[in-house]
Design a protein around this nucleic acid. Structure first.
Length: 456
RNA sequence: GAGGUUGUAGCUCAGUUGGUUAGAGCGCCAGAUUGUGGUUCUGGAGGUCGCGGGUUCGAGACCCGUCUCCCUCCCCA
């Protein structure tokens, strides 16, 4: 016999936590549906050929791989063992747990492109798995809520994502948040402008840390990553720009020589305009050149949402990807989407005390079980309550009333029906209000009417 | 994957330089109360001290390994 334990980075969710999580899921799902997204679910695991190479090298490493079933090592030869673990992995594992919902979605779109009404809008709420080291707000199994549109380049999609976030987060009580937006094309243009063509990857990683470690440290890191001091000098405008409120003009002057950067700026300006046209006042959107995060497949807009005044990383992220389906052989389908992290939103709401006070119980009334005769009588009342739409249960054992009331108390059941010989004889049951302690004698249909009224 | 930190009852934690039988609060169970929960009082149960090895006459404490929690880096929801 061994002590039970949870796998690293995983958690159980008890009834109380589930009530809160369900509240989040329901709020998000309702919003997704209101914007015309349709539901989709995909398998927990996929063939590794689908997942590998989509998230960069780092991502490949964080994929949970599933060992082939059966005699996975039978066909291995001595050279296989000496080729290193990466080559070996390919020979003993063909499947992996999904790392996000976007790539499985792209796979689905490619496999079903003939039958989908394009542009196709889908939402998907499922867990994903990542084999990284757990930390605050970071788990190895967590839920993502994704909404994506594929099959259109329209920047309305980006604007709608902004709207969607402005619907969902306040509905959850998160009023103080910032949607940071950047565009991959601008980053590409910057890399070109400073004479570091194709190096936007490392550039992004370093720049992204600006607000965390400061300008000097960023410059140090850039040198370490192989940028020339000349390039870094040319990068100067980025630092002065980063906290401006309407930096597009400056940015245009600086990057006028880069066609691709100008296109990126233009795209962002359009998004800003569309958001305004959609009637959103005081949008919590902020352009941030230093926002460089994003999985390797992003090509246009990049989003990241931060809840302010909390010690938790971003609660949402997303962006536009032009060639994700291309990696499955079907190019030319552009997509854009957003992903909300339920587990982090939960942590934020917990930290800010934002969960509405909800009834911790689902049972509204419990019938006591005094003795055999009363039990049988109770069984005849129970279905009447349930048929009337009242959540009801009967205590299953004939034990001391004290114990039964204690159970009701602990389960936060607001009403108890006491049935004994008196009640059976008169047909008037004792309805006890557990909060006030008061009791009244009523017949079954009166009780149903009372409880129904109580519920609303 | 690199570095740091933590682990003692169901929970939160004490436990002296290594020394008898490892403690407290809360919770749990039972009784006070044979038809009445929360409050109170009384009593009780509950520990391979994360796991494995080592040092020692003797280890919860010291050493090594390992797992886990939390944190920093990397990266991300």
């Amino acid at each position: 016999m061994s002590k039970p334990s949870l796998a690293r980075g995983t958690r159980d969710f008890g009834p109380e936590q589930m009530a809160k999580r369900t509240f989040i899921f329901d709020t998000i799902r309702r919003a997704f549906q209101r914007y015309g997204f349709l539901p989709l679910e995909t398998p927990a695991f996929e063939n590794l050929s689908v997942l590998m190479g989509k998230y960069g090298e780092e991502g490949d490493q964080l994929l949970f791989k599933i060992l082939n079933s059966g005699d996975f090592s039978g066909k291995l030869t001595d050279p296989d063992w000496n080729e290193g673990y990466k080559a070996l992995t390919g020979k003993i594992s063909e499947k992996g747990l999904r790392y996000d919902l976007t790539v499985p979605f792209a796979r689905y779109v490619v496999m079903n492109r003939g039958t989908l009404a394009m542009p196709f809008k889908r939402y998907q709420i499922q867990p994903v798995w990542r084999a990284d080291r757990p930390q605050k707000g970071r788990y190895r199994e967590f839920y993502q809520c994704d909404a994506d549109v594929v099959g259109t380049d329209s920047l309305l999609c980006e604007a709608e994502i902004v709207m969607l976030l402005h619907d969902i987060l306040p509905a959850l009580g998160i009023e103080d948040f910032t949607i940071k937006i950047n565009n991959r094309k601008i980053l590409t243009g910057i890399a070109d402008m400073i004479g570091a063509h194709g190096m936007e990857g490392p550039l992004c990683v370093a720049i992204d840390k600006l607000d965390k470690i400061g300008k000097e440290k960023v410059e140090e890191e850039l040198i370490q990553r192989g940028f020339t001091s000349e390039s870094i000098l040319k990068l100067e405008p980025v630092f002065s720009l980063s906290d401006g409120t309407a930096p597009f003009k400056e940015l245009k002057n600086w990057l006028s020589g880069s066609e691709i950067a100008m296109k990126g700026i233009d795209e962002l300006e359009t998004v800003w305009k569309l958001v305004k046209t959609l009637g959103l006042e005081n949008a919590r959107i902020q352009f941030d050149v230093t926002l460089a995060r994003g999985l390797s497949y992003y090509t246009g807009a990049i989003f990241e949402v931060k809840a302010n005044n909390v010690q938790i990383g971003s609660i949402s992220g997303g962006g536009r990807y032009d060639n994700l389906t291309g990696t499955f052989g079907v190019p030319g389908i552009s997509g854009v989407g957003i992903s909300l992290g339920v587990d982090r939103i939960y942590d934020v709401m917990e930290e800010l005390n934002l969960f509405p006070e909800s009834r911790k119980t689902s049972t509204q009334v419990m019938i006591s079980n005094f003795d055999e005769e009363a039990f049988l009588y109770g069984l005849s009342v129970l279905p009447k309550l349930r048929n009337a739409g009242i959540n009801a249960e009967i205590y299953p054992d004939s034990v001391k009333l004290k114990k039964q009331l204690d159970y009701a108390d602990r389960k936060n059941i607001p009403f108890v029906i006491l049935i004994g010989s008196d009640e059976i004889q008169s047909g008037l049951l004792t309805l006890k209000n557990m909060k006030s302690g008061e009791q009244q004698k009523r017949n079954a249909s009166d009780i149903i009417a009372l409880l129904t009224a109580e519920r609303s």
